[in-house]
């Protein structure tokens, strides 16, 4: 158990030692199978989206993206992600800390409850807010009297998105922090560090990649969520349509190329976050060396 305090996890890419890897043939075969699987399941659909997006040429592509409704949908989507992701990140870190650093009764139940939104059908995750805040819902009459709009307005969309992306950060951190145990933090505490300092100086460096992954996934899903948001949005053009809903509208208007063009924009947003991630990654590893 030596060497823990010096943090062996800092270096990301370890040099591959020959006796710790497989024969070259096996390696190539494994890489080949992995790529073939990824190709059939993930890359091909992406390629289909891009092919369809450019079927009517570059100009049609640009005009689909610069459309006024597309722009307002983009704004709403970004706003939603901007609220949902930080809140869920905060929650994820808190939950992971509580679950992995302490033992208490009902922990399994708590972890399962955190996972639960994954298992809830997107249809249902929209429905529950309708049941709660809708005109026929439990709080509906009160909200209506006070002229507060939750569903069929931005708060409803944000809530549904938060629900759907709820577990991502926590889920990413829990196995990681579980595997790391509590030794590092305890060492820090025994050396006199307290509270937030322990977290920022000891825990955070250890979990930063997991945290970043979690946030990226949370963000990607927040921007791409369709089912739940569809239930609470009301589909008012230029007002409560997010990008995924705008895509559906375009598709239903037989504007297939435009629909896929907007979809490719969402893919682009995902790629941008990934680029940001790798820039961060390389900068951090440079600082460490």
């Amino acid at each position: 158990m030596g060497g823990i305090v010096t943090n062996p996890r800092a270096g990301k890419s370890k040099p591959i030692r020959p006796h710790l890897t497989e024969p070259r043939v096996v390696r190539y075969v494994l890489i080949g199978i992995a790529l073939l699987f990824l190709g059939l399941i993930v890359i091909l659909p992406m390629a289909a989206v891009i092919a369809e997006a450019f079927r009517k040429g570059w100009d049609a592509y640009v005009s689909a993206l610069s459309n006024k409704d597309a722009m307002s949908a983009l704004k709403l989507t970004l706003l939603t992600a901007l609220i949902a992701v930080p809140l869920n990140t905060l929650f994820g870190v808190a939950a992971a800390w509580a679950v992995t650093k302490f033992s208490f009764r009902g922990k399994n139940l708590l972890v399962t409850l955190i996972d639960l939104p994954f298992a809830v059908s997107p249809v249902v995750s929209g429905l529950i807010y309708v049941l709660l805040f809708g005109a026929q819902g439990f709080l509906g009459p009160w909200l209506s009297d006070h002229n507060i709009h939750i569903i069929f307005a931005t708060p409803g969309i944000v809530l549904a998105t938060m629900f759907v992306t709820f577990p991502f950060v926590a889920r990413e951190l829990i196995p990681l922090m579980e595997a790391q145990g509590v030794q590092d933090e305890e060492a820090a505490v025994s050396l006199g560090a307290r509270g937030w300092r322990v977290f920022f100086k000891v825990t955070l460096p250890n979990i930063k990649w997991g945290l970043l992954y979690g946030m990226i996934l949370c963000n990607a899903r927040a921007m791409g969520e369709f089912g739940a948001v569809s239930v609470v949005s009301g589909h008012i053009r230029g007002e409560t349509n997010t990008l995924p809903l705008h895509i559906e509208i375009l598709y239903n208007e037989y504007q297939f190329s435009a629909a896929f063009a907007v979809a490719s924009m969402l893919m682009l947003l995902a790629v941008v976050t990934l680029i940001v991630k790798s820039i961060l990654e390389s900068r951090m590893s440079r600082e460490e060396h």
Partner: peptide, 14 residues
């Protein structure tokens, strides 16, 4: 990076 894309793509588009 491609691994994450199924999250980013709206399910309907997928």
């Amino acid at each position: 990076g491609l691994i994450d894309l199924p999250f980013a793509l709206p399910t309907a588009v997928a």
